[in-house]
Structures are given as structure tokens and as C-alpha cells.
């Protein structure tokens, strides 16, 4: 980038400086704008394609605005897109994922809040070791646990079921929720817990009445984080569920890659948009919390 023209604080002549500065600003805005196009491009293409008929797709261009917009692809994607011969659309899988995401978000969040509190409000021997053990869990390479977890779920009679998937997301969500809450509670002044103790509150009362209400913002972050991770998960879904039990991203991939006849690109795009919509909405309406989680939990990417 031409950063050299951004500004020159020691001007040889005022004219040159003004020109240089102008060029600098132009370069900055031009670059930023090009990247705006780059990032918005795929979204734009997905939306427009999803509103076109298959004829228009074949005859028109990639970036053309739909001339005869239709929401039929969205309806098809929702209720009768096919995986092989099974033409149910995305809707049952959407519901699967909601059934999955609610407990798999709330349970680790609740436990993580208590864990984070327990890790910070009192000093006890081995505290740092316990935290390090749990923290490393955030970096578990999931390939290394797929085989044992599949075996375990099989032994528990949960192979291929959503409940098995819930269990997987709960246990591997715990390190993250614990880390988030721990990093929040460690910034809470220790005087608060001391004051509560002098006021007569016990360990759990201090948590319930003093700490938990304070942690509301981080709780939103954790819930959003956990929700987004689970909603967007593919690996666990594809490894531990099958058939009608798969979560939305697995279903989406199945719909898009099932190859019977001509590819209905418009329905593919509508399906992808439908699957992406919940997390996109979260981003639009709670972007602040989403980004906070992203920055704090960047390890999971």
C-alpha cells in the first residue's frame, strides 16, 4: 500500500503536502472500498442467485440483479429440497438444531459461570494448575477425540442421536465457558467478595447475589459464542449424527452436494442463506457481544 503518501509532516512546500495528503486519503478510501466489495460480494451473489429462477441463472451473469425476483427457491429450500430421495427441505434440520442448541448452550454457560467464579474468588492450592488443565481443553484438536467420543457415544446408546451431539457440545463447550467467565471474574475486585463475606453471605450466596448479576454482559457474550459455535458446527454433527438427526450445517452440505440431476443453484443459495440467517441476525443485533466473544475466544476461530 502506498502508505508513504498518507501524510508528510515536514512539508517542502504547502502545495505538495496538500496534494500528497489528498493522494493519501484517496488511497486509503479506495483500498477500504475495494475490500468492502470483496467482503460483500459473496453475500450479494448468494442473495441475488437465491432470488433468480434457474433459467435466469443459466442465461444471466453472476452479478446480475434478478429481473424477475422469486422467493420460490427459499420456499423450496425450507420445505422440499432433497437429500438423495428424501425431500424434506431444511426445516426439520433447522428444528433439530434448535433442539440441540438450547441445552448445549445453556448447560455449559451455567456451569462455566460457577467454574469461573470458583477459579477466581478464593485462592486455593492448585488453582492455576486446574485452570491450565481446563484451558488447554479449548485447544483440543477435535480429530484427536473423534474416535474415542464416537466409541463412548456408541456405548451410551447415543450414537447417531441429537442427544449424543448435545453431550459432545456440552463437554467441549465447558473449557470455553469456564475460560470466559474466569477471565471476567478475575477482573472483579476481590473486595466485593470480601464485603459479601463480612455481610454474612456464603460461597454460593455471594455467587448468586453479587457475582452472577454482575456477569450479565459476559453471560450474553458466552451465550452468543456458544450458540454461534454450535449452530455453525459441522465436524461433530457429521461425525456423531446421521440421517434425519443431523444438524443444519450437515443437512445443508448434504443438500448442496447431493447430485441428482441438474444443480438447482438458486435453491442451494437459498438454503445456505437460511442456514446462515440465525447467526447473521445475531451479528446484526448483538454485534458488540459477538465481537467481544470472538476476540476473547479467538482460539476456536
Amino acid at each position: 500500500m502506498n502508505a508513504a503518501t498518507l501524510a508528510s509532516p515536514m512539508p517542502r512546500s504547502a502545495v505538495r503536502t496538500d496534494f500528497g495528503r489528498l493522494l493519501g486519503w484517496a488511497a486509503v478510501y479506495f483500498t477500504l472500498f475495494v475490500f468492502v466489495l470483496f467482503f460483500l460480494g459473496p453475500l450479494f451473489v448468494m442473495i441475488t442467485t437465491s432470488l433468480k429462477s434457474i433459467e435466469e441463472i443459466r442465461l444471466g451473469t453472476l452479478i446480475g440483479i434478478p429481473r424477475h425476483p422469486t422467493i420460490q427457491p427459499w420456499i423450496d429450500a425450507w420445505s422440499n429440497a432433497c437429500v438423495g430421495v428424501d425431500c424434506t427441505g431444511l426445516s426439520p434440520f433447522f428444528l433439530n438444531t434448535i433442539y440441540l442448541v438450547v441445552p448445549a448452550t445453556l448447560i455449559p454457560t451455567a456451569i462455566g459461570a460457577l467454574n469461573g467464579y470458583a477459579l477466581t474468588q478464593v485462592n486455593f492450592r492448585g488453582q492455576n494448575i486446574v485452570y491450565a488443565i481446563i484451558l488447554f481443553g479449548c485447544f483440543t484438536p477435535y480429530q484427536a477425540i473423534l474416535i474415542p467420543l464416537a466409541q463412548t457415544l456408541g456405548k451410551l446408546g447415543l450414537a447417531g442421536t441429537i442427544n449424543g451431539l448435545i453431550l459432545a457440545h456440552v463437554v467441549y463447550g465447558l473449557p470455553f465457558t469456564t475460560m470466559f467467565f474466569r477471565n471476567f471474574f478475575i477482573s472483579v475486585p476481590s473486595d466485593l467478595a470480601k464485603a459479601a463475606r463480612i455481610d454474612g453471605a456464603g460461597f454460593f450466596q455471594t455467587f448468586r447475589y453479587v457475582m452472577l448479576p454482575m456477569s450479565l454482559p459476559i453471560m450474553v457474550v458466552v451465550i452468543i459464542w456458544q450458540f454461534t459455535s454450535i449452530w455453525n458446527d459441522f465436524l461433530f454433527g457429521v461425525a456423531f449424527t446421521s440421517g434425519r438427526n443431523v444438524p443444519i450445517m450437515v443437512a445443508l452440505n448434504n443438500i448442496v452436494s447431493s447430485s441428482t440431476g441438474e444443480r438447482p443453484y438458486n435453491i442451494d443459495m437459498a438454503s445456505a442463506m437460511l442456514a446462515a440467517l440465525p447467526t447473521l441476525l445475531v451479528y446484526v443485533f448483538a454485534g458488540k457481544y459477538f465481537v467481544r466473544g470472538l476476540m476473547a475466544g479467538s482460539v476456536k476461530g
Binding site: P42, W231, D268
Partner: peptide, 23 residues
């Protein structure tokens, strides 16, 4: 601008893959 740059992080890799596969 920042929000536009960051929104892909809210999308799953599956959706990203599908979009780019199409393009």
C-alpha cells in the same frame, strides 16, 4: 466498514464454502 469486514466470522465455513464454490 468494520462491521462489513467482520461479518464473515458470523457465517459457518460450510456456507462460505458453498458461496465460493458457486462463484
Amino acid at each position: 466498514i468494520r462491521s462489513i469486514y467482520l461479518y464473515p466470522m458470523a457465517i459457518s465455513f460450510i456456507v462460505t464454502g458453498i458461496a465460493w464454490k458457486w462463484m
